[in-house]
Design a binder for these strands. Structure first.
Length: 806
RNA sequence: GCCCCGGUGGCGGAAUUGGUAUACGCGUUCGACUUAAAAUCGAAUGGAGAAAUCCAUAUGAGUUCAAGUCUCAUCCGGGGCACCA
């Protein structure tokens, strides 16, 4: 006769799970497997927030659901620990990021345990652990060996606040993804991963993924494939600039894209166009301000003005470029020959042409392109409505992508060291694999500066390294954190392997990941991990080419006022507070599953939390507050099924409406199919409905066991307590379709599509349309409308519906 | 500007895919228990109406025996892309 005391029950079961490790798994070749994981968290000092709880609970519901079905289910856990917050904290307080990280991990682990997650704690990983990043460095070297990790000097996004370069994927509307400050362009020599090598496959396989359409579309847009042609325009030698007098010669057909560092020819300009058929209307050329051989196009008359324009463009932030789309530009002083018309056309420089896309130069066809027309009108250039020509006549077919190579160097301390050293000529050499890991050096001063070198440069002893007897200097940049998270899912298969990044047999059994749950990183992380997967599959290290089968992308949880939770607004709900107030972890978990459809944002509602608590309390009472009195009072309320126990309700005798077996099998089916579809909110609603029914009509032993089993993925502590009391295991129940049909069915009778009567008939009468019709016509409510006869009748057996048209 | 989604009670949201609109929860009201309150339990709850009925899924048309669901137009909200040649 105890009250429902979640904190007591939860402590009891958490201790049992800690000691007995029921969630520890190993490969069992003859047992079906599942692998379920969340996007691992960055362990911040603030601890878990309600968004983490939503994320982790979705994973946990699936995990327990599969475990209860005797599927060998792995649910690992890890921490994405490299990154700016720990480093900025270090700069502010002098505490080593290593120490901050350790504290934060301990806190996260403790809190995750407090939520009762079915984690295999022997599969815990941490990206800043040398045992882990040793293999991140190994991955880098594999890419380096195949030429997919390379250095290039070019203009890059630079965040002046974080004092580091950023990948394109980390620049959001011209702002740094971390600190929000506007980014600038800076010319630097940096490391890249050649993701563009896999652009085609990354694009083509998107369609086969069981991922939300939203994410798939974003990835497609990001890759941005365009089919067109490259066309070479020779410069007009008699009319211009610095190259004058140089020997005129045809340049070889260009193949690479501007991004790959190709040096354009000095006596021709190659453009990329998706409309090579409009070449007769090309009346001028435009090159980007950063166009590599711009200098060669200039004349004494134009040099000063063009260089001033270039300098101004580089200084302009992305935001300014976006806000002011008014076309600007300057004539270079040079002309080119349109290969189709043989006419001499002027060459302009303008910042509406992007250096990083295509060849950094375009042929302007103002009659067919709005942007070119705008430019032509402003600068009084001819607009020619020319005929179209065959697409292949003047150019080489060419496919171009918006996606650029992935810039991975960071000029920051708290990241994975890049395993490279430079000889005295400055040429890079890989650190031999047997010298890994390149251990992260301790430094005294974490402050970055604008020298373009990371604080690692201050670890003077560490910088020196000997490779093959030669003295070298280590690379001081660190790897983008996304590199560390591009392979962690594979590490889960064999997290303590010291011979390899991942064990081939283990990974073959466990992966690809069956369900991956998260709320962010639509392009960056989810594109990078696909890229690495394809690369390592090509090297024979992975037996699959896509790492994630099903992706679940959930919405955010906002404050009760609908606004984003933030410390500064003071509207943050701390999940641990909710637990400790007395609601417990089960209520918190179940509430967050009930809050709304997974994919949608939701607002926290403290009163609804109470509603979920009441529901769990009712579940508890059904099992623990039953007494023999209520037992006998309610037995007989149901048509002769098993002995029913009803704790509270008097067992209202409205049986005949439905029988208990049907209700039970219906809820099993509903909860099972809903979890499969990740419709957790309606699964919880179905359980609530079931409990309401049991209160009204009495519950059998079988009902209570079923309830506890179905409840367990959501509220595992309470459900375990119930099952223990009932002396039952937690094996997931199965429904039998034959119990879902009852002896009688309700027929909906409509007149002209409007509901007019409901008829209860024997189930077998569904086969007899004429009988149902006559029964319906005999109904007085129906008869009222059919006095003038019936023009038509439609009977829909599957919907139990009969419609008369009068 | 272009491309996707959405719009259902006082609120969060259901609706077997064209077939009983508003499940479940919150809130509200009433009742039971209590000296009282809380908790708990029960009942009611889209709107109008005494009732029969009528009207309701952003708005307007259309298709259909039947439309929240399909088609077209309009309005509003959210997301993505955004000078990518």
């Amino acid at each position: 006769m105890d009250r429902y005391e979640p904190l007591k029950i939860e402590a009891k079961w958490q201790k049992i799970w800690e000691e007995e490790k029921p969630f520890k798994v190993t490969e069992e070749p003859n047992v079906p497997k599942m692998m379920v994981a969340e996007m691992f968290p960055y362990p911040s000092g603030a601890g878990l927030h309600v968004g983490h709880v939503r994320n982790f609970t979705i994973v946990d519901v699936l995990t327990r659901f599969f475990m209860q079905q005797k599927i060998n289910t792995m649910r690992p856990f890890g921490y994405d620990t490299f990154g700016l917050p720990a480093e900025n904290y270090a700069i502010k307080t002098g505490t080593a990021p290593q120490d901050v990280t350790k504290t934060n991990i301990e806190n996260f682990r403790k809190q995750a345990k407090r939520l009762g997650y079915a984690i295999d704690w022997d599969r815990e990983i941490n990206t800043s652990d040398p045992e882990y990043y040793k293999w991140t460095q190994w991955c880098f070297l594999q890419l380096y060996k195949k030429g997919l990790a390379y250095q290039k000097e070019s203009y890059q996004w630079w965040c002046p606040v974080d004092q580091t370069v950023l990948a394109n994927e980390q620049v959001e509307n011209g702002h740094c993804w971390r600190c929000g400050h506007e980014v600038e362009k800076k010319k630097m020599k940096q490391w890249f991963f050649k993701i563009t090598e896999y652009a085609d496959e990354l694009l083509e396989e998107i369609d086969s993924l069981d991922w939300p359409e939203k994410i798939k579309t974003m990835q497609k847009n990001w890759i941005g494939r365009s089919v067109g042609a490259e066309i070479e325009f020779l410069l007009d030698s008699r009319s211009s600039g610095a190259w004058q007098g140089e020997e005129k010669r045809r340049s070889p057909v260009a193949t690479g894209r501007a991004d790959a560092g190709r040096e354009p020819s000095k006596n021709s300009i190659t453009v990329f166009t998706t409309r090579p058929d409009t070449i007769l209307g090309a009346t001028f050329l435009v090159v980007a301000p950063e166009y590599p051989s711009l200098e060669a196009l200039l004349t004494d008359d134009t040099r000063e003005e063009v260089l001033a324009y270039k300098a101004a463009s580089l200084k302009k932030s992305e935001i300014e470029r976006q806000e002011n789309k008014e076309k600007t530009g300057v004539f270079t002083g040079s002309y080119a020959i349109n290969p189709a018309t043989k006419e001499k056309i002027p060459i302009y420089v303008a910042d509406y042409v992007l250096a990083g896309y295509g060849t950094g130069a375009i042929m302007a066809v103002p009659a067919y392109d709005d942007r070119d027309r705008e430019f032509a009108e402003k600068f009084n250039l001819p607009i020619v409505e020319a005929e179209l020509v065959d697409r292949d006549l003047y150019g080489t077919p060419k496919i171009t992508y918006k996606m650029r190579d992935w810039l991975i160097s960071r000029q920051r301390y708290w990241g994975c060291p890049i395993p490279i050293a430079y000889d005295k000529d400055g040429d890079p050499h890989p650190i031999p694999e047997d010298q890994l890991p390149v251990i992260h050096p301790e430094v005294k001063d974490y402050q970055p500066d604008d020298t373009g070198r990371s604080p690692l440069a201050k670890a003077t002893d560490w910088l020196k390294v000997t490779i093959d007897g030669e003295e070298m200097t280590r690379e001081t940049d660190t790897l983008d954190g996304y590199a560390c998270s591009s392979w962690y899912l594979w590490r889960y298969a064999s997290p303590h392997d010291d011979k390899a990044a991942w064990d081939k047999d283990a990974i073959k059994y466990w992966e690809p990941v069956d369900y991956y749950v998260g709320a962010d990183h639509a392009v960056a992380h989810l594109l990078y991990i696909r890229f690495w997967c394809k690369f390592f599959a090509d090297q024979g290290f992975l037996p699959f080419r896509e790492p994630i089968k099903k992706l679940i992308y959930h919405g955010y949880i906002n404050a009760p006022d609908g606004k984003k939770m933030s410390k500064s607004k003071g509207n943050v709900i701390d999940p641990l507070d909710v637990i400790n107030e007395g609601y417990g972890a089960d209520t918190l978990r179940t509430y967050e599953m009930f809050i709304g459809p997974v994919e949608l944002d939701a607002a926290w509602d403290p009163r609804s939390v109470g509603g979920v608590y009441r529901f769990l309390n009712r579940c508890y009472n059904l099992v623990f507050k039953a007494d023999d009195d209520a037992f006998s009072r309610s037995s007989g309320a149901w048509q002769g099924e098993e002995k029913r126990r009803s704790p509270v309700a008097t067992g209202r005798a409205d049986a005949g409406r439905e029988n208990g077996i049907a209700i039970r099998h219906r809820v099993i089916k509903k909860v099972t199919t809903d979890i499969h579809k990740c419709q957790f909110n309606t699964a919880v609603a179905a359980l609530m409905e079931y409990v309401n029914d049991l209160y009204k009509q009495g519950a059998s032993e079988e009902d209570l066991i079923t309830l506890a089993k179905l409840l367990k993925p959501f509220a595992p502590h309470l459900a375990s307590e119930m099952l223990e009391k009932l002396g039952a295991d937690d094996e997931w129940p199965v429904w039998d379709e034959k119990y879902l049909t009852s002896d009688t069915v309700e027929i909906i009778v409509q007149i002209n599509g409007k509901l007019r009567a409901k008829l209860t008939v024997n189930a077998e009468d569904l086969e007899d349309e004429e009988k149902i019709k006559s029964l319906a016509l005999a109904d007085e409510k129906v008869a009222k409308y059919t006095t003038n006869g019936i023009r038509k009748s439609i009977f829909v057996k599957k919907s139990h519906l009969l419609n008369f048209v009068v």
